[in-house]
Design a protein around this nucleic acid. Structure first.
Lengths: 202, 202
DNA sequence: AATAAGTCGAACAGCACTGTTTGGCTTATG
DNA sequence: CATAAGCCAAACAGTGCTGTTCGACTTATT
């Protein structure tokens, strides 16, 4: 689905880009932002917006897809090989930031998009973490007494909550990554084994 | 604030109760539930609802307050003395259930109520956990390298995420408490000390 | 320069919700 | 049993959004 006609004109592409950007921005601040607001913020008429996106859902989907794409690109640059503990730390360092930005956008997506679509969009990042955790388990670094899906969930939920804490002013972005890594590494440690000390990396 | 006139009549009290109950129920399923829906579900006219609650916010506040009260009562029955690890396990056992029920209600509250009010309502349960964690730290059972507020946050955010997982069908309420406790106990373990094995309690 | 594509403001219709009023009815309570 | 308190349906006004249509204007493309 998409380009019905042969090709889009340059200014149309520019408009579309501005709209999606503005959508990500507005919905990021307020998940209930109206299409009028978004159009205004994009420096574009409301009608133009409807000319490119048939419904609110379609726009939210586009904004979310772009955010995920950007995130995937950023995550591609992260080295997830070597010591699973350090790899996980690197992942957190790069990832919590993305989660922070996409936070409210996700809220909007959860309201407007069917749940299956959300999971579909998240499948990329999720797979990355899953394989990392699986490897860590195979090497004895991570616990095997809890399902992988649960561990993935714990990681993301802690990153999300850190984002909330920052917004509430109870946590500085300075310490966020450290706190998340310290917490998650401990949570992933197999029962009976000692919790890793922070001195290792950096 | 509350009863302006001398006393409320019995049927009025019954209506109010039915409304608040229905509100908790409806908002628990859908945070955007309209006042009409709630009134209908309460078996009461829309006008009656407005007779008792001046605004939507007022009703949400009432529903949330009651849920918190109930939660506090349930938590009062939990023994938080003795081994901090076991005490925390008992807290989770009793608490995750409450979080599960109040989950969507909280979402509604976050939209309608000022953030300060939310924190105020949560101060009861929060204080409970805080003192438990503080005691566990003093006894060397919990880590001291992360702020207490962060640990409290981790606990609640994991309980919340478990509730989400259950609703998504990826986790059974059977295993929820076990997973949460296993995760949180590990996350709270001081660096260098071994993660507690699950065989202990039960 | 011709034309198809794109943009825009204004205005329309439709919807759902909030909050209020009116007037008649039922019921708790003294 | 009298009456004040409470209940309710219907109807109203007001708001803010979505999605569409229209006609005039501008701009990219060939």
């Amino acid at each position: 689905m998409g380009s019905r006609s042969t090709v889009k004109r340059a200014d149309a592409l520019r408009s579309i880009d501005a709209i999606v950007t503005a959508a990500a921005e507005c919905l990021g601040e307020n998940p209930e932002a109206s299409l009028s607001e978004i159009a205004r913020s994009a420096g574009v008429g409301r009608v133009t917006l409807y000319a490119h996106f048939a419904s609110r859902a379609e726009l939210v989907d586009a904004a979310m897809s772009r955010a995920i794409d950007r995130g995937n690109q950023a995550l591609d640059a992260v080295d997830l090989t070597g010591d699973p503990l350090l790899a996980l730390a690197r992942y957190v360092e790069a990832g919590w930031h993305l989660v922070d930005q996409a936070r409210a956008l996700l809220v909007a997506a959860q309201r407007e998009l069917p749940p299956g679509r959300i999971r579909e969009l998240h499948s990329g990042p999720a797979a990355r973490v899953e394989t990392l955790i699986a490897r860590g388990r195979a090497e004895g670094a991570f616990r095997t007494d809890l399902p992988i899906a649960w561990l993935v969930n714990v990681l993301h939920s802690i990153m999300h909550s850190a984002a909330d804490e920052i917004r509430a002013g109870r946590l500085t972005s300075e310490h966020a990554a450290d706190h998340i890594t310290a917490t998650v590494l401990a949570a992933f440690t197999p029962p009976g084994k000692p919790v890793p000390e922070p001195d290792a990396g950096a």
